[in-house]
């Protein structure tokens, strides 16, 4: 039983197209592909997702259209993009075991790398030059967040209502730091209902 039920919106035509593809990957192969990408791609989900798409396409496990359909669905789940696309694409290609294998492939390399970094920080983190380096690196954080916002905002299809909702929700989240969960989930529900109504 795939992790996303059979009723997950894949048209019958998709199944025929799929039959033309060479073969289905085993969980072990999925693990190796996702592990390899996760181990060498720095910059999180935004950097990893296109690399994953190309890797699956190259092996002819998924074509580009289907990959981006799956990615669109993966984005409607919480969780790092690279992780949810691994769950969704792994599940689509090799069932629950495929999802688990692909997700483990994404998670394990950074986990190992960070244990090493953590150990190195514990050993050298108090040295003056290392502290200066870390302070300088930390100073880039607001700039990098702002750049990500800039890039996303430029591509967004804006309406006055969406702009007002974005700013209003941002203000509410900033003013009520202890209530992020209820504010976010409540707002997302209202926004969903509003978007559905605006369309019809």
């Amino acid at each position: 039983m795939p992790i996303l039920g059979e009723d997950s919106g894949r048209p019958a035509a998709g199944q025929e197209a799929r039959a033309a593809l060479p073969r289905e990957p085993s969980p072990g192969e999925l693990f190796r592909v996702f592990f390899g990408i996760s181990a060498v791609t720095v910059g999180g989900g935004y950097a990893m997702v296109p690399v994953i798409g190309r890797a699956l396409e190259k092996r002819r496990w998924l074509d580009e259209d289907e990959f981006y359909r799956l990615f669109a669905r993966a984005q409607s789940f919480p969780g790092p993009n690279a992780f949810t696309i691994a769950l969704v694409a792994g599940g689509r290609l090799a069932g629950t075991r495929g999802a688990a294998a692909a997700a483990a492939g994404v998670v394990l390399p950074p986990f190992g790398a960070l244990l090493l970094v953590g150990a190195a920080l514990g050993r050298f983190g108090q040295l003056a030059p290392v502290r200066s380096f870390l302070a300088g690196a930390g100073a880039t954080v607001p700039g990098l967040v702002a750049a990500m916002i800039w890039k996303i905002a430029r591509k967004r299809s804006w309406t006055a209502a969406r702009a007002a909702a974005t700013l209003g929700l941002a203000a509410a989240l900033a003013l009520l730091p202890g209530l992020t969960l209820p504010v976010f989930l409540g707002a997302a529900t209202i926004l969903y209902l509003a978007e559905r109504r605006w369309k019809s």
């Binding site: 409607s76 702002a146 916002i149 996303i152 909702a165 941002a170 369309k199």
Partner: peptide, 21 residues
């Protein structure tokens, strides 16, 4: 409604990023 869900989440996550900033 996948389209409405996508738009709602785009608005909400951009607001979360502004809060992060």
């Amino acid at each position: 409604d996948q389209g409405a869900l996508d738009e709602a989440l785009r608005t909400a996550t951009l607001a979360m990023m502004l809060m992060t900033l």
